[in-house]
Design a protein around this nucleic acid. Structure first.
Lengths: 123, 123
DNA sequence: TAAATTGTATAACTACGATATATACATTTA
DNA sequence: TAAATGTATATATCGTAGTTATACAATTTA
């Protein structure tokens, strides 16, 4: 499995792993039912503790990307893109809510906010 | 000075103080030139270390709300509302940028994002 | 001018969470 | 049954945030 981890990146190892696998799934490079390396095998490959790979896999399970079975291994789950999108929408809402709160306190109008949104999108 | 601090709120004491004073200034209850309690007096009132009130006042100085002079005390500065608004715009931009990034990765369109923004505003 | 009051600067202590690890255990596979 | 797999619990390490203590400097005030 092609995973690169960097100690200098500042990003925690378990997130580097889970994000790279997540990307492979979202890009279709890993599909429903595909097996991914066992926690121990991947840990040995990357020369890290397998508890760290477990942590990475836990993230992926939490987000519905994989499933793990004792003795068998870990596998890519059927992807529920709708569910994923809804979760991301919730995240986006949280960010927007904070933006709106900040804007209100500073007297920034909603139309200004919409302008800023487009502006930021183009950048 | 009417400041309430709560140990159970989770919000750091120095932020509770600086936010309450900031609000008073933005609401006009404290005006340019008004003196605010000395760090030690306020600290004694609130039964905390005066280094914590200093920390709070430093926040307020950093954001241009007050000025402090050794031996004299701390005073409300002339408010530059334009500057304040620009700073808040920068903060809002950062939040919107993250929202846009998240949205893009999840295939959320810009028009959906604008809708979400209005939706969040009404809530 | 001396004492009191005020802000400043530096250091250190504590608490907490995040990250990574070790080790013992349970389940499945071959 | 041995080997491989995931699970659970505990521990170690590290960094950061929050708070405090203490010594110092400048101004005000009696």
């Amino acid at each position: 499995m092609n995973i690169n981890i960097s100690n200098s990146s500042g990003e925690p190892i378990y997130l580097q792993i889970s994000n790279q696998i997540k990307t492979m799934i979202l890009e279709g490079k890993l599909k429903e039912g595909d097996s991914i390396p066992s926690m121990r095998v991947l840990a040995t490959e990357l020369r890290i503790s397998f508890m760290t790979t477990k942590r990475a896999y836990e993230e992926l399970e939490r987000d519905g990307f994989i499933e793990s079975y004792t003795g068998r291994g870990s596998f890519v789950k059927a992807q529920n893109l709708e569910l994923y999108k809804e979760e991301q929408i919730r995240r986006v809402e949280t960010l927007l809510l904070e933006a709106v709160d900040t804007a209100k306190k500073a007297g920034i109008s909603m139309s200004e906010l919409h302008e800023l949104l487009d502006l930021v999108n183009e950048a």
